[in-house]
Design a protein around this nucleic acid. Structure first.
Lengths: 208, 208
DNA sequence: GTCTATAGGCAGATAGAC
DNA sequence: GTCTATCTGCCTATAGAC
């Protein structure tokens, strides 16, 4: 990016991109403004023409990621389907979105403790909003008798942890395609809420 | 701890305890040797009588935690039961162990990127060993036809992510007891591998 | 809006007294 | 084994030229 003419580039965006990669790799506290500037092809002092402080870069990365994530789901047509289809769609949406932005995802859930209190509150509120999306799907399915759940609040968090964890170990070009892994997670979630798997002929096998 | 007579305390252990709490709360890079020393009730320079470098504290915390975790499972009698019982026992073991050491767990999975390459390799090897415990249980159950699985390697990671995530949101004194939450996770895992739930108290109400 | 230069402070690590 | 004192270097943020 450093060979792009200065007039044709959005320096703030370049700074953010450099910061995102560095923070995802090393952690916010371990990344210096000099490294970010180097990554963005400018000098260290120049960052302050676009961000008043290092903390503002982190807040921008996290808030914008969470808002984009929520907006992307709200643009999904399947969100108004019956509970089982909506749940499948949410699983596919979550995994797909997280694979396309692995660095933003990593930062959003690893750097909460690097946020100053005010910024933390803002990001936490957005995380709650996202979590509520899944909780509402589960609660609706339970209310309609489609899902067999014991506590949608607990199960929401268990499933989100499982789904988000996929980005920590899957690498493109591995043994399984992302589509295969996604199908696998869809079935894991379906079974966890008491539905039949969608991609597997078996109902439950023998009990012990 | 700072009012304990110097002769009767293991200063290295006090330093480790202080470092564990601080690193869990703020992250390795954001914690200074001065803060650790303050927490341990000594002066900053005194740490170097017990650890040659800051990095050595982190390595000790992470390696010892992983080794203790693996050793604790290997001391569990249920590890040689049939697959379904062994899986239940593993879920209970994992959650219970993680609840008793939430700070060590947090550090062990948040600070991998703060380890220098040699130390990273050592900790990664221990993580693989632990992951293999669950993978072997799943593979054994699949081979015996007790579990309905599509890919034990993927399902291992999905389940470990789900189980480990419990420590990030559960607080003692919350709406549900830890025993209740553990039962709930046991059933989620049982259903995810195609077993019938063991605690048949399924509610179908929307309890959000 | 980017640069150079620098202020002011804190980091990890070491030396040597006791 | 703990202390005080200090070294060296990097940190965030700012000032002012262009």
């Amino acid at each position: 990016m450093s060979d792009v003419p200065a007039r044709s580039r959005d320096t703030a965006a370049v700074i953010r991109a450099a910061a995102l990669g560095l923070i995802a790799a090393k952690g916010y506290a371990a990344v210096s403004m000099r490294e970010i500037a180097d990554g963005a092809g400018i000098r260290q002092g120049g960052i302050y023409n676009h961000f008043a402080a290092k903390q503002d870069i982190l807040r921008a990365l996290m808030v914008d990621h969470m808002e984009a994530l929520i907006a992307a789901w709200e643009a999904c047509p399947e969100r108004s389907c019956p509970p089982a289809e909506t749940l499948d769609a949410f699983v596919r949406f979550h995994i797909s979105y997280h694979f396309t932005r692995p660095e933003a995802v990593l930062v959003a859930y690893m750097e909460l403790r690097s946020l100053e209190p005010e910024n933390f509150a803002a990001v936490e509120a957005l995380r709650d909003r996202y979590e509520r999306i899944l909780r509402d799907i589960l609660a609706r399915g339970a209310a309609e008798g489609v899902f067999a759940l014991r506590d949608p609040a607990v199960e929401t968090r268990a499933l989100i942890a499982m789904l988000t964890g996929v980005t920590t170990w899957v690498r493109e070009g591995g043994r399984l395609s992302i589509a295969d892994i996604t199908d696998l997670y869809v079935d894991l979630v379906r079974r966890a809420v008491g539905l039949h798997p969608a991609h597997d002929r078996t109902r439950e096998t023998a009990d012990v």
